[in-house]
Nucleic acid binder design. Sequence first.
DNA 1: GCGGAAATTGACAATCGTTCTCATCCGCGC
DNA 2: GCGCGGATGAGAACGATTGTCAATTTCCGC
Lengths: 134, 134
Amino acid sequence: MTAQPAPARRITRQREAVRDALAASDEFVSAQSLHQSLRAEGSSVGLATVYRALAALAEDGEADALQSGGEVLYRACTPSHHHHLICRRCGRTVELEAAAVERWAGQVAAEHGFVEPEHVVDIFGLCAECAARR
Amino acid sequence: MTAQPAPARRITRQREAVRDALAASDEFVSAQSLHQSLRAEGSSVGLATVYRALAALAEDGEADALQSGGEVLYRACTPSHHHHLICRRCGRTVELEAAAVERWAGQVAAEHGFVEPEHVVDIFGLCAECAARR
DNA sequence: GCGGAAATTGACAATCGTTCTCATCCGCGC
DNA sequence: GCGCGGATGAGAACGATTGTCAATTTCCGC
C-alpha cells in the first residue's frame, strides 16, 4: 500500500474543543476566527493547535475546506461526497448532491485521457435574505 | 451606477511583457515564477508590478485565476466563460465548455432562493503522459 | 511636437495567514 | 503506575501579497 505509517490520532481536550466549535457553526469559518471563538469562551487552545486540528479533521473527511480571500475556511460536513451553495454575504451554506455533475466530471476527464479525477464544484451567490436586505 | 471612476488603463512596456509572458505559457503560473521568468529573459519588471498587471488581466477577463497551494495561479484564457481540466502533476490545462453544468448551477441556486450565482468548477487529475510516467 | 495631469512603476517595508521549532505535556496501551 | 510517542503552545520563521511614495512614463489636447 501507499498508506503512510498511520500517525495514530489521539483524542485530546483541544481537538474535541475544535471539533465542537466547528460543529456549532453552520457556515464556513477561518482557523483564526475559530481560535478567537474558543478563546472567548474560555477554552485555552493554541493557534497552531487549531490549525493542526482543522487540518486533521479535513484530512479525515470530517470537515470541508475551501480557500476564500487568501485564507482557508472550514466547515463540519457530512461524510459523503458533496458540493456547496454558499452565500457570499452571510456565509450560509447548503450542501448539494449532484450525481450528474460527478458523472460529467469523470467522463470529461476520461475523454482527455486524465485519470484519478477530483473536482471542485462550488456555487456562490446571495441567499434570499441577503438579497432582500438590499 | 455603482461604477467606480474607471481608472483608465494604460499600455506600458511592463504590462505588455506580463501579458506576453502569460500567453507564452499554456499552464497556470504563479506571479512569483512569472516575475522570475521575466527577469531571466532580461525584462526589468518589479514584482509588485507583475502582481498588479496580473490582477488587472484577471479583472479584464483576459486571464483566469485559481488558488492552489497557498498561492494564486494565472493563465491566459479565452474571453468566453469556461472551466478547466488541470493535470495536478505537470499543470497542463484543457479549457472546457459545459452548458449543462451552467444550467445546473443556475437552477440549483434558484431552487434555494439564491441570486447572482457564480460558480467554481475545476477538475484536477493526472494527464495521460504523467499517468504513464509511473 | 509639447506640456502637463494622472496613471504607473519599482524598491522596500509592512501585513497577514500559516507553518515550523522545540521543550514540555499527556493519552493510552501494557 | 510506567513509558513511549504523539500532541501542545509560545513565539519565531516564512512566504505570498499588498501598501507606500517619490520618480517616471503615457496619452490627451493644443
